[in-house]
Amino acid sequence: MTPPSAGPSEPSAESVDGPTAPEPVAPLLDVRGLRYRYPGASTDALAGLDLSVAAGEFVAVVGANGSGKSTLARLLGGLERPAGASTAVACSHDLLSEDGRMAARRDVGVLFQNPENQLVAECVEDDVAFGLENLAWAPEAIRARVDEMLERFWLTELKTREPHLLSGGQKQRTALAGVLAVPRRALVLDEPTAMLDPAGRDEVLEAVRGLRAGGLAVLYVTQEMDEVVGADRVVALEAGTVVYTGSVGGLFGDGALVRRLGLGLPAAGELALELAAVGREFAPLPLTLDEMLVALGGSS
């Protein structure tokens, strides 16, 4: 494991992620009554889901295994066709039409959970270039863009390394660089840290942190409640529908809902709920160690 040698790239105004649209009125991702059923399945994976994400917004999506998180990621990326009755728009492309989905694949990036299964090429830089090659960019333009991405995700020194020789964190950063090499307006990350060790997780989170600066709409799917803290908004899924949307604190404050959804709280929140059960309540719910210390200090 190699810790990133440089800090995260500065969130800069001239970030190339998507045109700097002057009218950020309509949300970039907007779905209503979204339905989807896998071929041969007996129940809907998504059963009338409503969600919208604006440019520059960072929305976390949580829910138990099988609640529809990954399916949502696939649909928003234009990778599956939503069922007929849905309204589904991604970066102003209609996801119900074939052409709309193809266009959405350009504007909406999707990063998947297993880094091993998304790297195609034989070395890092070829992999980062893959999307641009598909879009038939000129070789010089690909070179420039790839170098920029390698730099941004601290991969320059690894550019000729074969994927199977990379650590988990390095693989996932390569995959992220490959997804963002294509200029995107929205990005869906489907549990990008689930299969990584803490060092790899830190690497990827560090890379993710700089994302929304460029006006990118980010949908961050996760099981790790620590990673939810800091999102603009959190959306909780259950059986393919949204059962909560709002602030992070609001979700964790509703202990019954958290339990029902099979979510875990950050350790501090867990302790706070346990304390509430024995008669010592905190409002708002402390979610980090520091908040917990303040709460304990303040109330004792």
Binding site: A64, N65, Q113, A194, Q223, M225, G262, L263, G264
Partner: peptide, 10 residues
């Protein structure tokens, strides 16, 4: 515990 949801982990 890798890639299990919190309830399953518990």
């Amino acid at each position: 515990f890798v890639s299990l949801d919190p309830a399953t982990r518990r």
